[in-house]
Amino acid sequence: MTASAMTRNAVTGRSTSVTPRFSALQRLLHWLMAACILAMLFIGVGMNSTVTPKYLPLVETHKTLGFVILLLALIRLAVRLVVGAPPLPADLPPLIKLGAHLSHYGLYALMIGMPLLGWGMLSAGGYPVVLLGHIQLPAILAPSDALHTVLWNAHFYLAFAFFGLIALHAGAALFHGFIRRDGVLESMASVSAPREATRPGK
């Protein structure tokens, strides 16, 4: 973690007296993807509850944006493995720390898993997977009723789990930022230049 904090500081060019933050690239990816993923969740439930002509462009956007998210998530995971993350506050209770780590694993798993489930579901259903009306992707599974059903259910239920996890995650971020005021929110807070943050107990 120290090593990664130093790397991060190398990236942001800041001294260690300032709250450790995610690198600018990580913050950019975080907020860009947060916007995309929230849009995806709304598009998903919106398209599945309408029979009006907007159904078709919504589905097309859903597939295309879903693949953009998959690509961004893979890049983000790679950056995370190379650059690392600032340590959580030392005084954070161990159980909360565990919760934070597990929820981050969960979010990464969903960012990568949801698009793969969507792609797999369409493949297993014998559907062509076409982006932007003409980019044809290969099927990643052979047609199968049983697989289609499993993946369809997984994509459906995990979408709601994703929404719930994001709500919890955002709530926790606000708790860190305004109740604990421990610098965790600031570590991700803005895409722009670093800002001084007070870390209690330091």
Binding site: L174, G177, F178, R181, D182, P200, G201
Partner: peptide, 18 residues
């Protein structure tokens, strides 16, 4: 939190966020 009393303005921000 140790040594830092919660400020009313921050509680309001938290409430708005929630």
């Amino acid at each position: 939190m140790p040594g830092t009393p919660i400020r009313r303005g921050d509680v309001a921000k938290f409430a708005i966020g929630a």
